[in-house]
């Protein structure tokens, strides 16, 4: 088990190094003089030269990379040009919103996608299955911002049940009740992902139910419910669990849009604003953090897979 974790962690670290090179190079893909682009048209040559020196752009490329990566390892992702604050502070400001939004979304995805997928599979071919599968297809193909706007229209504007925008921290006045600000955004974000997980769960359940060992289970004379839970679901979830890693990646890109629609102070919105402000150190920092999160999550998926499927070798 330990060897398995070490090996997978090593692979993740190698990916991280490769990703860090790409992220680092990104600043040099800017046409022309990066410092001048960042500062905009109004900058004087002296300001450009000062920024060049501050960003270390005068050094050879390889030295620049080690300088940047070395600092990143020590938790220093540079300074934001716009805020004139450390990038880590800028990211930390948006982290609470984004982490809570992603977590609540994943809870919706699991709580809705998996059970409804199981029900659709068990009632295969019925009107219920066709209705649910059709609905899932529809919801999976609707963009999140559109779902978000509709949710705002119905639940915030018309019914007035939930707030439509913003998010005060749970550590401020209001406490955990402030989570209600995240209900609509997380539902919007969960909709296409839950629909995909629903379809995947259904398809996987139907695949597994054709397996020989399911026939063996039926032949034993155990109840249809036990066949489903003990033999079909357990194996069908193997596929679904591995999809969670990909769902998370989709979630991140969709969160950028959702945070904008709901005016949430999250990392997604920080990225959008930083792109508009050409605040490259922030963009680099955020992408690096997202890559790390993605790698950690997939590592966890791999490890949990080992517990779910004994055939995954402990090499």
């Amino acid at each position: 088990m330990l060897g398995f974790i070490v090996k997978r962690t090593g692979a993740a670290l190698a990916t991280l190094v490769a990703a860090s090179v790409l992220i680092f190079m990104f600043i040099h893909l800017i046409p022309g003089e990066p410092a001048a682009v960042m500062l905009g048209d109004a900058a004087t040559p002296e300001q450009v030269a000062a920024l060049r020196t501050r960003l270390g752009l005068d050094e050879p490329l390889i030295i620049q990379y080690f300088y940047w990566a070395g600092n990143a390892l020590q938790g220093d992702l540079g300074r934001s040009i716009f805020f004139d604050e450390p990038v880590t502070t800028v990211i930390a400001d948006g982290a609470e919103t984004s982490i809570l939004l992603a977590s609540i979304t994943m809870i919706w995805v699991v709580l809705i996608g998996v059970p409804v997928g199981v029900i659709a599979a068990m009632r295969r071919g019925s009107w219920l299955d066709q209705g649910l599968s059709g609905l899932a297809m529809l919801l999976a193909s609707i963009p999140t911002f559109w779902v978000g706007l509709y949710l705002i229209l119905v639940f915030a504007a018309q019914l007035g049940w939930l707030p439509s925008s913003g998010y005060p921290s749970i550590f401020d006045e209001g406490g955990l009740a402030n989570l209600r600000y995240l209900i609509l955004p997380s539902l919007a974000l969960a909709t296409p992902n839950a629909a995909l997980i629903l379809r995947l769960t259904r398809a996987s359940m139907l695949d597994v139910s054709k397996e020989d060992y399911v026939r063996t289970a039926r032949a034993k004379g155990i109840s249809p419910r036990q066949v489903t839970v003990r033999h079909i679901l357990r194996n069908a979830l193997l596929v679904v669990v591995s999809a969670f890693g990909f769902t998370f990646a989709a979630l991140i890109s969709e969160a950028v849009v959702t945070e904008t629609v709901f005016a949430l102070p999250g990392i997604g919105r920080t990225v959008v604003q930083s792109i508009l402000r050409r605040d490259y150190p922030v963009i680099q920092g955020v992408i690096l953090v997202i890559v790390c999160l993605y790698l950690v999550l997939n590592l966890l998926v791999d490890i949990s897979y080992r517990f779910l499927d004994p055939r995954v070798e402990l090499e």
């Binding site: 397996e211 020989d212 060992y213 026939r215 063996t216 289970a217 034993k220 004379g221 155990i222 003990r230 033999h231 357990r234 194996n235 193997l238 779910l308 499927d309 004994p310 055939r311």
Partner: peptide
């Protein structure tokens, strides 16, 4: 392929015993 790959063999035998 006739045995469930993710469940222990002992459990799969025990399941059949308990049904009857």
């Amino acid at each position: 392929t006739s045995l469930n790959p993710v469940r222990r063999i002992g459990d799969q035998i025990a399941e059949a015993i308990k049904v009857h």
